[in-house]
Design a binder for these strands. Structure first.
Length: 139
DNA sequence: GCCAACGTTGGC
DNA sequence: GCCAACGTTGGC
Protein backbone atom coordinates (compact mmCIF):
# COMPACT_ATOMS: atom_id res chain seq x y z
CA UNK A 1 0.00 0.00 0.00
CA UNK A 2 1.60 3.21 -1.20
CA UNK A 3 0.84 6.91 -1.08
CA UNK A 4 0.81 9.41 -3.92
CA UNK A 5 -0.01 12.98 -4.84
CA UNK A 6 -2.03 14.06 -7.89
CA UNK A 7 -1.91 17.62 -9.15
CA UNK A 8 -4.61 19.35 -11.08
CA UNK A 9 -5.40 22.89 -12.02
CA UNK A 10 -8.82 23.47 -10.45
CA UNK A 11 -9.92 25.41 -13.56
CA UNK A 12 -9.39 22.24 -15.57
CA UNK A 13 -10.38 19.55 -13.12
CA UNK A 14 -10.93 20.42 -9.47
CA UNK A 15 -11.86 18.54 -6.32
CA UNK A 16 -15.59 19.20 -6.81
CA UNK A 17 -15.36 17.59 -10.27
CA UNK A 18 -13.63 14.59 -8.76
CA UNK A 19 -16.27 14.28 -6.02
CA UNK A 20 -19.03 14.53 -8.62
CA UNK A 21 -17.72 11.34 -10.27
CA UNK A 22 -18.57 9.44 -7.12
CA UNK A 23 -17.35 5.91 -6.41
CA UNK A 24 -16.96 5.10 -10.11
CA UNK A 25 -13.98 7.45 -10.22
CA UNK A 26 -12.34 9.02 -13.23
CA UNK A 27 -9.45 8.29 -15.53
CA UNK A 28 -6.41 10.42 -14.62
CA UNK A 29 -5.73 11.04 -18.29
CA UNK A 30 -3.62 13.62 -20.05
CA UNK A 31 -0.32 12.83 -18.39
CA UNK A 32 2.48 13.19 -20.95
CA UNK A 33 5.49 12.87 -18.72
CA UNK A 34 7.42 9.64 -18.30
CA UNK A 35 8.15 10.01 -14.60
CA UNK A 36 4.52 10.71 -13.82
CA UNK A 37 3.41 7.81 -16.00
CA UNK A 38 5.91 5.48 -14.39
CA UNK A 39 4.56 6.41 -10.99
CA UNK A 40 1.05 5.54 -12.15
CA UNK A 41 2.27 2.18 -13.44
CA UNK A 42 3.45 1.37 -9.92
CA UNK A 43 0.04 2.02 -8.37
CA UNK A 44 -2.17 -0.70 -6.93
CA UNK A 45 -5.91 -0.64 -6.39
CA UNK A 46 -6.45 0.72 -2.88
CA UNK A 47 -3.41 3.01 -2.86
CA UNK A 48 -4.26 6.43 -1.48
CA UNK A 49 -3.33 9.84 -2.83
CA UNK A 50 -3.62 13.52 -2.05
CA UNK A 51 -5.52 15.73 -4.47
CA UNK A 52 -3.60 18.98 -4.95
CA UNK A 53 -4.77 22.17 -6.61
CA UNK A 54 -1.93 23.72 -8.61
CA UNK A 55 -1.55 27.18 -10.15
CA UNK A 56 -4.62 28.56 -8.43
CA UNK A 57 -5.26 27.19 -4.96
CA UNK A 58 -1.86 25.77 -4.12
CA UNK A 59 -3.17 23.41 -1.48
CA UNK A 60 -3.98 19.79 -0.81
CA UNK A 61 -7.74 19.60 -0.64
CA UNK A 62 -8.70 15.95 -0.55
CA UNK A 63 -7.87 12.27 -0.43
CA UNK A 64 -8.39 9.93 -3.37
CA UNK A 65 -8.08 6.20 -3.87
CA UNK A 66 -6.74 4.31 -6.88
CA UNK A 67 -9.64 2.24 -8.23
CA UNK A 68 -8.11 0.87 -11.45
CA UNK A 69 -4.50 0.07 -12.27
CA UNK A 70 -2.77 1.60 -15.27
CA UNK A 71 -4.49 1.14 -18.63
CA UNK A 72 -4.34 2.95 -22.01
CA UNK A 73 -5.17 6.66 -21.83
CA UNK A 74 -8.44 7.04 -23.73
CA UNK A 75 -7.55 10.59 -24.81
CA UNK A 76 -4.67 9.55 -27.07
CA UNK A 77 -3.79 6.95 -29.68
CA UNK A 78 -0.16 7.11 -28.60
CA UNK A 79 0.58 3.77 -26.91
CA UNK A 80 3.24 5.33 -24.70
CA UNK A 81 0.67 6.94 -22.43
CA UNK A 82 -1.52 5.20 -19.93
CA UNK A 83 -3.12 6.09 -16.66
CA UNK A 84 -4.94 4.88 -13.56
CA UNK A 85 -8.47 5.68 -12.36
CA UNK A 86 -9.00 7.45 -9.06
CA UNK A 87 -12.05 8.19 -6.94
CA UNK A 88 -12.57 10.69 -4.15
CA UNK A 89 -12.50 9.37 -0.59
CA UNK A 90 -12.93 12.43 1.60
CA UNK A 91 -11.92 16.08 1.73
CA UNK A 92 -9.31 17.35 4.16
CA UNK A 93 -11.03 18.95 7.11
CA UNK A 94 -8.48 21.73 6.78
CA UNK A 95 -6.76 22.09 3.38
CA UNK A 96 -2.97 22.04 3.66
CA UNK A 97 -1.30 24.81 1.68
CA UNK A 98 1.98 24.69 -0.20
CA UNK A 99 3.16 27.50 2.08
CA UNK A 100 2.50 25.35 5.16
CA UNK A 101 4.33 22.43 3.58
CA UNK A 102 7.34 24.57 2.67
CA UNK A 103 7.45 25.93 6.21
CA UNK A 104 7.34 22.52 7.86
CA UNK A 105 10.76 20.96 8.49
CA UNK A 106 9.20 17.47 8.47
CA UNK A 107 8.02 18.02 4.91
CA UNK A 108 11.14 19.63 3.47
CA UNK A 109 12.00 16.53 1.42
CA UNK A 110 8.62 16.28 -0.28
CA UNK A 111 8.72 15.94 -4.05
CA UNK A 112 6.18 18.74 -4.14
CA UNK A 113 8.89 21.03 -2.80
CA UNK A 114 11.92 19.44 -4.49
CA UNK A 115 10.48 18.87 -7.94
CA UNK A 116 7.53 21.16 -8.25
CA UNK A 117 6.87 20.22 -11.88
CA UNK A 118 6.15 16.53 -11.40
CA UNK A 119 2.39 16.13 -11.57
CA UNK A 120 2.05 12.60 -10.20
CA UNK A 121 4.44 11.91 -7.38
CA UNK A 122 5.12 9.53 -4.49
CA UNK A 123 4.48 10.53 -0.87
CA UNK A 124 6.18 8.75 2.03
CA UNK A 125 4.18 7.23 4.88
CA UNK A 126 5.62 9.79 7.30
CA UNK A 127 4.65 12.65 5.00
CA UNK A 128 1.21 11.14 4.57
CA UNK A 129 0.55 10.89 8.30
CA UNK A 130 1.94 14.33 8.98
CA UNK A 131 -0.17 16.03 6.33
CA UNK A 132 -3.28 14.17 7.49
CA UNK A 133 -2.63 15.53 10.96
CA UNK A 134 -2.25 19.06 9.60
CA UNK A 135 -5.39 18.49 7.56
CA UNK A 136 -7.29 17.32 10.66
CA UNK A 137 -8.17 14.11 8.85
CA UNK A 138 -7.55 10.49 9.76
CA UNK A 139 -4.78 8.91 7.68
C1' DG B 1 1.27 37.40 -17.08
C1' DC B 2 6.05 36.47 -16.27
C1' DC B 3 9.72 33.54 -16.23
C1' DA B 4 12.75 29.87 -14.01
C1' DA B 5 13.18 25.17 -14.05
C1' DC B 6 12.63 21.24 -16.25
C1' DG B 7 11.62 17.84 -20.06
C1' DT B 8 11.72 16.71 -24.91
C1' DT B 9 13.17 17.00 -29.64
C1' DG B 10 16.12 16.83 -33.38
C1' DG B 11 20.33 18.30 -36.03
C1' DC B 12 24.91 17.28 -36.10
C1' DG C 1 25.46 10.87 -27.73
C1' DC C 2 25.74 15.85 -27.18
C1' DC C 3 23.47 19.96 -26.64
C1' DA C 4 20.84 24.04 -28.48
C1' DA C 5 16.30 25.18 -29.26
C1' DC C 6 11.91 24.78 -28.05
C1' DG C 7 7.66 23.73 -25.27
C1' DT C 8 5.37 23.21 -20.84
C1' DT C 9 4.56 23.55 -15.98
C1' DG C 10 3.52 25.96 -12.04
C1' DG C 11 4.92 29.32 -8.29
C1' DC C 12 5.01 34.00 -7.83
Amino acid sequence: MAYWLFKSEPDEWGWPDQVARGPAGEEWHGIRNYQARNNMRLMQVGDLGFFYHSRTGLEIVGIVEVCATSHPDSTTEDPRWDCVDIRSVRPLEAPVSLEQIKRDPELSEMVLVKNSRLSVQPVTEQEWKHICKLGKTKP
